[in-house]
Design a protein around this nucleic acid. Structure first.
Length: 308
DNA sequence: AGCCAGGCAAGTG
DNA sequence: CACTTGCATGGC
């Protein structure tokens, strides 16, 4: 077993592991202590989190386990390989958070949210898992989205042994495509089941891959991703922001739309494309997705309920 | 019991 | 293009 420490002092700005992995941007990290996933602040002590990275992101080309825990300014990790680089990349630890904050804006909502979750980073999740989890996210609560991803892993993901325990990788595109709509309905996906089955088949067949939009200009990339079944502008923005590193993407979900109505009514331009352009400018341009994610987490945990 | 959840697709006007 | 409707399931 490999292990190591990432000291926040090496990074540009603070780190808050719990806010990063429990703010609804990634569904690939599980808390080890078995407590409810999204009960922010309810755990005692510093919990371990674990994930299984896909073979496409490991040196062995096989799924590998990573465990991680924050103690003050230090991130302790354990893994089946030298995972320091992968962790830094996957959790946005290489982002210059201090510089990003300077472009996020200073209105009350943004300032309150940033102060509440100082150290929250934007993740770079494995693209296929990110795509599936946000297809599943339609009309579902964050806690349930996370539960569904775990159900998919347990039922359809490869077993990975590590340190005497068994973990599950996220299902491959072929595994989800082969499972088909009926099996995915059995696992609780509801009307999203055919969306996941069809989009997984597109990837398994080599017809399309979320990674294929890398290099495209932002709005082009978003439009391309809507070629997947079950992916509209909002889910496409989630994949761009939480997986592909498009930090300007601002997913216009119900929480953000209600925040726009309440706090930035001049940014409501009536269409997704135009409202997106306006709020992106208000939220700091190239780093607007960071602002969105702080605002989302703050609204969902401390702010008022959406009215939309 | 009814309403709602990190929406999307298909169908109208 | 704007607007409406149907869609699974679980928690409050």
């Amino acid at each position: 077993m490999d292990a190591g420490v990432i000291d926040a002092a090496e990074l540009d700005g603070p780190v808050d592991l719990q806010a990063t992995v429990e703010s609804g941007q990634t569904y690939r990290w599980d808390r080890f202590d078995g407590q409810a996933y999204s009960t922010v602040g309810a755990h005692g002590g510093d919990p371990w989190y674990h994930t299984v990275l896909p073979g496409s992101e490991t040196p062995t080309n096989e799924p590998e386990v990573v465990r991680l825990r924050q103690e003050n300014g230090r991130l302790n990790w354990e893994a089946s390989f030298d995972a320091a680089g992968a962790i830094r990349q996957n959790l946005g630890l290489e982002d210059d958070l201090a510089a990003i904050r300077a472009e996020m804006g200073n209105d009350p909502l943004v300032s309150r949210a940033y102060d509440a979750f100082r150290g929250l980073r934007i993740v770079r999740d494995p693209p296929f898992a990110c795509l599936v989890s946000f297809i599943c996210s339609a009309q579902m609560r964050v806690e349930r989205i996370h539960g569904l991803q775990r159900a998919l892993e347990r039922a359809l993901g490869a077993e990975v042994a590590f340190d005497g325990e068994t973990y599950h990788a996220f299902p491959t595109p072929a595994a989800l495509a082969d499972a088909g709509e009926s099996r995915l309905r059995e696992l609780g996906l509801g009307y999203r089941a055919p969306y996941v089955a069809e989009s997984a088949a597109m990837v398994a067949d080599g017809e399309f891959h979320p990674r294929a939009v890398l290099g495209c200009e932002y709005e082009t990339a978003r439009a391309e991703l809507t070629g997947f079944v079950g992916v509209g502008d909002k889910v496409a923005d989630c994949v761009l922001l939480f997986s592909l590193g498009y930090l300007q993407a601002v997913p216009l979900d119900t929480w953000i739309q209600s925040a726009i109505a309440e706090h930035y009514p001049d940014c409501d331009r009536g269409s997704y494309t135009e409202t997106s352009r306006a709020i992106r400018e208000r939220f700091g341009g190239r780093y607007a997705g960071y602002t969105q994610t702080y605002a989302f987490h703050w609204l969902r945990t401390a702010g008022s309920s959406p009215t939309a």
